[in-house]
C-alpha cells in the first residue's frame, strides 16, 4: 500500500507552495465573515446555521484545490515514473484524494476556534455543531472526489478546474430544481442533490442514509477516476 507515500508527496506539494495557505486563508476569511455577520445580527451563540454556507465557499475552492493533482503529474512526466513503479492505480488515486481531504480537514480544524469563541460567549448546543462538522466533512469528501476525477480528465489545470466547478455547480443547481419535478424525475433529481443530504446534519441528526450517500458518491467518482487512468495507460 503506497497510499501514504503518494499522499505525503501531495501534501508537500500543497504546503511547499503557497497554494494550501492561500486556499485555507480564503476559506477562513469568508467563513469568518459569515461568522461575525451572524453573531452581530442574530446574537445567538451558535454556529451550525452558518456552517451550511461554508459548503458554498468550498464549492468555489474545491476546483482550485484539486486541479493540479493529476494534471501536474502529467506535465512533469511523473505519471510514467509512478505507473512504472510497483504501485497500483488505486493507491495513487486514494493517496491524492486523501491529501486534498487532509487540507480540507485542516481548514475545518481551524474553524473550531469559532466554536471555542461561542462557547466562551454563551452556552451553545454542541451536538448540532458536531453533527454539522461531520456533515461538512462528508460533503467536502464528495466535492473533492469530483475534483480528483476532473483533474484526471485533462492535462490542463484551468480546464480541470472549470470541469470540476461546472460539475459541482450542476449538483448545486439540481438542489434548486427539487420542487419543479414530480414522481420519478424528482427521485432522479434528489439523487443528484448533494446539498439536500446535508440538512439533517445541520439540525443535529446523524443520518445514516446521508453518510451512506456521501460515501457512495465519493466512491463512484474515485472508481471512475481509477477506470479512466487505467484505460489511458493499460489499454
Amino acid at each position: 500500500m503506497k497510499i501514504w507515500t503518494i499522499c505525503k508527496r501531495e501534501l508537500k506539494g500543497y504546503f511547499y507552495s503557497t497554494q494550501a495557505y492561500i486556499l485555507i486563508g480564503f476559506f477562513l476569511l469568508l467563513s469568518g465573515f459569515f461568522f461575525v455577520n451572524f453573531l452581530v445580527r442574530a446574537q445567538i451563540p451558535t454556529i451550525q446555521y452558518i456552517m451550511g454556507d461554508w459548503a458554498l465557499i468550498f464549492l468555489f475552492i474545491t476546483p482550485i484545490l484539486t486541479m493540479k493533482l493529476f494534471t501536474e503529474d502529467r506535465k512533469h512526466g511523473m505519471e510514467k515514473m509512478v505507473f512504472s513503479s510497483p504501485v497500483s492505480v488505486t493507491d495513487v488515486v486514494l493517496g491524492k484524494y486523501l491529501a486534498a481531504l487532509l487540507v480540507y480537514g485542516a481548514a475545518l480544524l481551524v474553524t473550531c476556534s469559532y466554536t471555542i469563541i461561542v462557547s466562551l460567549m454563551g452556552n451553545p448546543d454542541l451536538g448540532p455543531i458536531a453533527s454539522s462538522y461531520l456533515g461538512l466533512f462528508l460533503l467536502g469528501s464528495a466535492f473533492i472526489s469530483v475534483g480528483v476525477f476532473a483533474s484526471s480528465l485533462t492535462e490542463n489545470q484551468i480546464i480541470a478546474a472549470v470541469i470540476s466547478f461546472s460539475l459541482l455547480l450542476f449538483f448545486w443547481l439540481a438542489d434548486l430544481l427539487q420542487g419543479i419535478f414530480k414522481g420519478f424525475s424528482q427521485d432522479i433529481v434528489s439523487l443528484l442533490s448533494v446539498f439536500e443530504r446535508y440538512m439533517p446534519f445541520q439540525s443535529g441528526i446523524i443520518a445514516l442514509s446521508g453518510i451512506i450517500y456521501y460515501i457512495s458518491f465519493t466512491a463512484i467518482f474515485l472508481l471512475l477516476t481509477i477506470r479512466l487512468i487505467k484505460s489511458r495507460w493499460l489499454q
Partner: peptide, 18 residues
C-alpha cells in the same frame, strides 16, 4: 515485474517543488 525495473522516460520525471 516492475520491482526489477528502472525507467527513465524521454522527459525526465521530476517534482520541481522538491
Amino acid at each position: 515485474a516492475k520491482k526489477h525495473l528502472g525507467y527513465l522516460p524521454e522527459i525526465p520525471p521530476l517534482y520541481p517543488d522538491m
